[in-house]
Nucleic acid binder design. Sequence first.
DNA 1: GCAACTTTGATGCACATACATTTAATGTCC
DNA 2: GGACATTAAATGTATGTGCATCAAAGTTGC
Lengths: 123, 123
Amino acid sequence: MVDTWHYVLAKHARTMCMLERVLGDRHGLGPSEFEVLDRIVHHNRKLRIQELCDEVHLSQSALSRVVARLERAALVSRGVCDEDRRGVFVHITDEGRARYAEALPTQRAVLAEVFADAPVLAT
Amino acid sequence: MVDTWHYVLAKHARTMCMLERVLGDRHGLGPSEFEVLDRIVHHNRKLRIQELCDEVHLSQSALSRVVARLERAALVSRGVCDEDRRGVFVHITDEGRARYAEALPTQRAVLAEVFADAPVLAT
DNA sequence: GCAACTTTGATGCACATACATTTAATGTCC
DNA sequence: GGACATTAAATGTATGTGCATCAAAGTTGC
């Protein structure tokens, strides 16, 4: 249990550090930006901020700012939600899709390196 | 592999969040402060900043500030290292030991809750 | 229809962290 | 022994995060 926690801590620190460096240097993305793009691509549709919030390991405020950064970089666009005008839809742009596709192999390579010796996990 | 990473991300986020809240509220400690005390207690001797740096998932600068906070709270004290006068030794104080002992069950309870369903891990 | 409450997403603020630099002490080469 | 590089730890600075709060829109009860 304590061992599992140490394992999680170590892998998390190492992976995050590598992802930050390599995604940042090669693709101009942070891990949070990548994660948000990843969720949108996998759903393959526009999502509400709220839906993203449930899937991403970020507070609502942090997510709001990540989306703002992504929009500034033209990787996503925000649109109003007509059914509930409090809501905000997040679209991924073509450029966002391209950037994600470009970054994905990089991320996978990092995971492969860090988790090469990984045990098989349940849960 | 991707699954392992998702597992690590989820458990890390959940555990960190709970630890931050519960250690902070009940014992006035952050996760980093707790981790540093933990390392010192387990070695059961004064350690150099550098040694701590290898064991803790923090940058050198972050560690320096964590130790500064702990010293301000009188949980550790810093002393010069006579062999290498660039170095700094970190002692744990009686109060630090007491606070750690008090916080340990709290931390274990959080781990128990989060990792109740945890698979057995190698590595 | 209106007032009170809730919900959604954005923002003010405080703070912890990482990176780069600084300061001081050591080490090394000649 | 003196100049230059190296190392340890502290600090300036920028940034990302969470909490609390806010404004706007929606919901409920009367």
